[in-house]
Design a protein around this nucleic acid. Structure first.
Lengths: 140, 140
DNA sequence: CCTTGACCTTCCAGTGACAGGAGACCTTAT
DNA sequence: ATAAGGTCTCCTGTCACTGGAAGGTCAAGG
């Protein structure tokens, strides 16, 4: 299977398939002409990766999950730990975004949004007591 | 005011203050010895930036907001539009994360998390019907 | 005067997970 | 023979910083 067919089969862009090979997540065969040749097994792995990424797992988590998936004598506790940590991270992000939304929503609601210059949004940004102070939860 | 004092006054790392100068968001004076010298005005601008960033505005949005803040004849509609667009973006991210959380929560709940290899999380990732399929809302 | 230590400066590299594009090679159809 | 389209590698850019190296500056103490 060519790269563009594998892309279609997995829903991932061809660029991403090359990238996943570069960082060692998958290892498709090569044809004599140098073209990548994706087997059903490799496509299966790619679909696993696509779903893990869709759930927000980082690449390194994906690498760990793939290793556990391949390890028939794994302990499910190890899988669960990764998922639970990631879930906590997601909850932290949701909390941070929810705080932002509350503050922004309030500012937007109180702004006339017409052709006059008075603007509670700018006032809120210029004053100290405007709400959220820390975005670190979103960056990490 | 030296850079480390301005950092303390704004809550931003000194590295970030240098970065903001590099990209033209602020322009502190320079002392004869080459040290940056932050005025109260500049610190005020930096605090404005810190709050806008804490609300999740991107750097280019911050640049626009600063320009509107400085423009006494602005129309508040222009400020509101930026804030509303950003708010919509935040809501999209919250929705995407909430979907992820639901799926992950379910998987984590059904996983024993002991020393046995059976694992509904890995099964869920290996099967098609696992939930969220698209993370693009988080990347952009 | 000299040294120590705490500042400050610039410049360069790295982050995560790709996306875009250049230039060249390969395949298939006409 | 040629044109179109697929594929290859390699390089750069994204976003908002963060870390570190190499070197200049300043105030205090001996």
């Amino acid at each position: 299977m060519n790269i563009s067919q594998a892309a279609k089969a997995t829903g991932l862009p061809a660029k991403t398939l090359r990238y996943y090979e570069e960082i060692g997540l998958v290892s498709p065969e090569r044809r004599p002409n140098g073209y990548r040749d994706y087997s059903e097994t490799t496509v299966h792995t790619l679909r696993f990766l696509a779903r893990a990424r869709a759930l927000g797992f980082g690449i390194e988590d994906c690498r760990s999950l793939l290793a556990l998936w391949a390890d028939k004598s794994r302990a499910s506790a190890n899988v669960r730990r990764i998922a639970q940590d990631h879930l906590s991270e997601i909850e932290r992000k949701i909390a941070a975004l929810t705080d932002m939304r509350a503050t922004l929503q309030h500012l937007v609601n109180t702004c006339a949004g017409d052709d006059r210059p008075e603007c509670p949004i700018l006032q809120g940004l210029a004053q100290p007591q405007c709400g959220a102070e820390d975005t670190s939860a979103l960056r990490k």
